Amino acid sequence: MNVTRHDPGPVTWVGIIAVTCLLLLLFQKILWLVVPFLLALVLYYLLSPLARRMVLAGFSNDFAAAALCGTFMLGLGLWLLLLYPWTLANADAWHSTFMRYLTGGYSLIDGLVKGMEHKFAFARGAHLSEHMGIRFAAMQNHFAEEYLGAALLALGAWLPSLLLIPVITYFLLKQGASFRKFLGVAVPNAYFEKTLYLTHAIDRTARSYFLGLVKLTLLDALLYSAGFRLLGISSPAMLGGIAAALGQIPYIGPLIGCLAALLVTGTDFPGQLELAYGVLGLFVAIRLLDDLLFMPVIVGKSLRLHPLLSLLMLLVGGAIAGIAGLMLILPMLGMTLLLGETLEIILTAPRLRARHAYARRLRARAAQNDLHTFS
């Protein structure tokens, strides 16, 4: 559908930003539902091509949705059944391995801090290495009680919500077209074309954004894995996948991924600061490639947001809802932008308003003729 693009005016932009912030405040209260819904959207866009092929092959839409989501749930259930005993059997080994990497990473960071204290007087006055040593010793002594237990409780609290993902995906695959038809019937005929464009644009934008993020994550995982392998760091594929997945969380995600890589580097190669600088350089290089090349090409301009506005909204999203706000604010703003610009077109287009008013007069005249006929 070829539709001329419309740039919203300043009043519409104020409304778009205000509605986005209000929605984020609301979604912060129901994150247990918002996060599974967003993940279900990603799964829906991944499975919808397979569903269309099954429908073209002669299967019903209901059967295609049930078969795909049932297969996903079966695979997920088998994976969880196998994961649970394996996790119990290796919990102690993982704990000792994590503490070993934590100790190695601390030694590396402590070496960097002591080098700064040796060169700069302000660093010596801050006593950073001494404070870091005290905090690290406390974390070692109380890691299982304070950190591991809290992580397991958080995972247990989120597990029921995450089980909603295949259920939501099933209904999206089964009734997505019915919802669009229901929406079209409820809209007056004069505004039908613009409403149809709005639903098509939202679906296209969401598909481009979410699938683009999946492709970007896979590409980053390949680059990180290749870089870690060249540097000689252990488990490059697993570490690259973790870094790529965390990299999709704005700001804080790449920092956590880089810290994890530095922990592994400090353990595998103690005292070799040049490898630590190599890891830092790898993260900086991939971040620049993402921002300057991969993001515009792969994700494209699906959200059509100015870089300065994106930065400001990320800061607002982080202030409102923390990490969840950083992840939700841009797709929410993109959807609200499409809705706002379409409503502005509808409310300010004289031809559309005239068509709607004329249709109402025709319906009123037909009703009066019916009354005269029956009387």
Rank of each mutant, 00 (worst) to 15 (best):
A89R: 01
L347I: 07
I17P: 10
M116D: 07
K181I: 02
P166R: 02
L173T: 02
A93C: 01
L78C: 08
G318Y: 10
A261T: 02
F136T: 00
A66H: 05
T265K: 07
G9V: 04
S310K: 10
E117I: 01
A243P: 05
A321F: 05
T348D: 09
L46N: 06
L213N: 14
I134D: 05
Y209H: 14
H372A: 15
I320P: 08
A321G: 06
L337N: 11
F192D: 11
P250F: 13
L255R: 01
Y44L: 04
F294E: 05
V264F: 10
L211A: 04
Q248M: 13
M116V: 04
F179R: 03
W79D: 08
P10V: 10
F63G: 01
T87A: 15
L223I: 14
Y45N: 07
G184R: 11
G271Y: 07
E344S: 11
P331N: 03
R204P: 08
G334I: 00
L343R: 02
L223P: 04
G176F: 08
A319G: 03
L338H: 13
D268T: 04
L46G: 00
A201I: 14
N141F: 10
A221T: 03
T267F: 15
H142M: 02
H200A: 15
R287D: 15
A364G: 11
Q175R: 08
N2H: 12
A319N: 06
V264Q: 02
A276F: 12
R124L: 14
L31P: 00
M335G: 10
G111S: 09
F210L: 12
G212W: 09
H118C: 12
L80V: 11
M335P: 07
M332H: 09
R229G: 15
A243S: 15
T169C: 15
R124E: 14
P331W: 12
D203T: 00
I202Y: 06
F283W: 08
M295D: 07
V35D: 02
A357S: 06
L41M: 13
L337D: 04
Y197C: 10
A93Q: 11
L25I: 03
W158K: 06
L23Q: 01
L326A: 05
D203S: 06
P236G: 01
L333Y: 04
A367I: 07
R355E: 13
E344N: 06
L337R: 07
P254V: 00
P350S: 03
G149V: 04
P36C: 01
L337A: 04
E117L: 08
K181N: 14
A364R: 11
Q28V: 06
L31N: 05
D62I: 13
Y106L: 11
V55N: 07
I345C: 11
F228T: 02
P160M: 09
L262S: 04
L231A: 00
L153E: 12
S234R: 10
L128N: 02
A154M: 14
I252K: 09
A237H: 09
